[in-house]
């Protein structure tokens, strides 16, 4: 974890007025954040990309929203796994917004802005730790098998001597990894992967 150092923020925003405004809000909010780059678009950013090492991007979605097929990920080097927050003060369609890890509204006050930035950074860090592997762990496979034989969370918890909370978190991870939610979908997964017999 990146302890005891400031979170590094890169702002990509075409309006100088807005750039300066958000910069001064973030800086004046204390010592938690520093602005390591202010750019009017991604092409200006990319020439510095290897030296800045940001913890979060704050991006005006207007610079990508003009083309619906465009994805924010296309603008970032593949290796970059840094949250990207939208800075909203004009209309952006919903599909474009969903690509971001969250958004900051131009009407948010300073406290809310820094709270949100922190939240996006921390959320991203924690998911990074969990998603080390896309494959199901042995324990997750056992839980999955148990789910497909119709056991409730409570039954699974007592069979494996773990808390219900742990069962739920295993189930969440299973869903996140394989993208299947329903019990019958999970059964199909288990059958196709030879985890259970028909």
């Amino acid at each position: 974890m990146k302890d005891k150092r400031k979170y590094r923020v890169v702002i990509i925003e075409p309006s100088v007025i807005v750039q300066k405004g958000i910069e001064s809000i973030i800086i004046s909010s204390g010592c938690e954040f520093e602005i390591v780059g202010l750019f009017s678009d991604f092409s200006h950013y990319s020439s510095f990309s290897y030296t800045l090492d940001p913890d979060i991007f704050l991006v005006n979605p207007g610079i990508i929203a003009f083309n619906r097929k465009d994805s924010i990920k296309n603008y970032l080097p593949e290796s970059v796994n840094v949250p990207v927050a939208a800075l909203l003060y004009m209309h952006v369609n919903g599909e474009s917004i969903r690509q971001f890890n969250g958004y900051i509204d131009i009407y948010d006050n300073a406290a809310k802005i820094t709270d949100k930035l922190r939240e996006f950074i921390l959320k991203n860090n924690s998911s990074e730790v969990i998603s080390e592997s896309f494959d199901l762990s042995e324990r997750e496979k056992e839980i999955l098998i148990s789910v497909t034989s119709g056991n409730t969370n409570k039954e699974i918890a007592s069979n494996f001597s773990i808390s219900i909370h742990t069962v739920m978190s295993h189930r969440k991870n299973i869903i996140r990894k394989i993208g299947i939610k329903s019990v019958s979908g999970l059964t199909v997964y288990a059958l196709l992967n030879g985890l259970i017999e028909q």
Binding site: I180, S184, G185, Y189, L192, N193
Partner: peptide, 19 residues
């Protein structure tokens, strides 16, 4: 909500898990 969930599961099964 069930209808949406199963639909998405079905999509993933065809895309990812059918051999």
């Amino acid at each position: 909500s069930n209808i949406d969930i199963k639909l998405s599961d079905f999509k993933n099964i065809l895309l990812k898990y059918l051999p």
